[in-house]
């Protein structure tokens, strides 16, 4: 049944689609190697983050830390902000997003349209500064509730309770699960669920490797590993550069008709790597990867037009995932 009482109830139950044209070719008598995409862009606000937003809000409600009319505070300008804005609107909360003052106007417009308030942090500090500003605001406003997706177990639990079971139900023969690594919530949740249920399953992370300028100011001693991250859940972790992410994003739309954001292109790159290894080793494989969102919000980045080199250059200074 595809009828729901409200938009919130329409979260999850996303389609898993085969990608037979992109899957590596195998000899007729060789074990099959298949590729599957779980389309998380088919969630209410168009990204996988709807699951985390809904579960984090529900968990806070159940714990009694979030009550009707409260203010939610979150340092984000991306998919989580948009997802939280929708959930907050429908459940009667005020949302304050903290984001660097130099983010795109699309993000700002989208968040405001959903009813979120925006507090800008200095551009020079990037998102680390936004997190710091949010933490400072949380101290000044003890009645505000910061859900903090990087450390909130409800983020991973959303995927343990929903995304993982959906995937296994639709693909009981799954051998590999591949997803992007950011807050790590998706991989921790789905990964733990599949490891509990499927002996030998591989949990593969694809991590974006941005242009050099993005890392240029990073001090190695001031890095950040999300509180949710447990490396024991993963079996492999790939770093995918801008060029490969763009190449795969374009292949998805050209070959399979699937229009996705660049982070999903990076994930496909890792998925193809493990699929080709399975072919080489003569092993059957059902490789499922997660499409976190569609490409719509990224059209203005310049990554979808021109040559690969031009796209790579356009994305060089951007955090494209």
């Amino acid at each position: 049944m595809a009828r729901y009482e409200s938009l919130l109830d329409a979260c999850g139950e996303t389609p898993l689609v085969g990608l037979p044209r992109l899957a590596p070719a195998v000899a007729p008598d060789a074990p099959p190697v298949r590729l599957w995409a779980k389309l998380e862009d088919r969630n209410p606000t168009g990204s996988v983050k709807d699951r985390a937003a809904l579960w984090m809000v529900r968990a806070a409600e159940q714990a009694g830390t979030l009550r009707a009319g409260d203010t939610i505070l979150e340092p984000t300008s991306g998919n989580t902000g948009i997802a939280l804005a929708m959930v907050a609107k429908l459940r009667g909360y005020r949302l304050v997003c903290v984001m660097p003052e130099n983010v795109s106007t699309e993000r700002t417009q989208l968040l405001r349209m959903y009813g979120a308030e925006i507090i800008f942090s200095p551009a020079a500090g990037g998102s680390n500064q936004a997190v710091a500003t949010a933490k400072q605001l949380a101290e000044e406003h003890p009645d505000w509730v910061m859900l903090f997706q990087y450390g909130n177990q409800a983020n991973a639990r959303a995927h343990y309770e929903t995304t993982g079971p959906e995937l296994l139900r639709d693909l009981p023969t799954v051998t590999h699960f591949v997803a992007g690594l950011g807050t790590t919530g998706t991989l921790m949740g789905v990964g733990r669920y599949l490891r509990d249920k499927v002996a030998g399953v591989e949990i593969v992370a694809a991590e974006p490797r941005y242009g050099e300028l993005v890392y240029g100011l990073r001090n190695i001693d001031e890095g950040y590993v999300p509180e949710l991250y447990d490396p024991e859940v993963l079996t492999r972790r790939f770093s995918v550069g801008t060029r490969d992410a763009v190449l795969r994003t374009r292949q998805l739309v050209e070959v399979e008709g699937l229009f996705v954001g660049f982070s999903s292109g990076a994930v496909l790159h890792a998925a193809l790597a493990v699929a080709h290894e399975a072919v080489r080793d003569g092993r059957a494989a059902d490789v499922a990867f997660l499409v976190a969102d569609g490409g719509w919000k990224y059209l203005s980045t310049g990554g979808y037009g021109g040559t690969l080199a031009e796209a790579e250059q356009a994305l060089d200074r951007q955090l494209w995932a």
């Binding site: 991306g78 998919n79 993000r107 990037g126 992007g180 998706t186 954001g261 990224y298 200074r317």
Partner: peptide, 19 residues
Amino acid sequence: GQASGASEALAGSASPAGG
């Protein structure tokens, strides 16, 4: 992280799609 320069459509996204 911090990106710099004019083309910043995604800069400052503290919530990557793939998380």
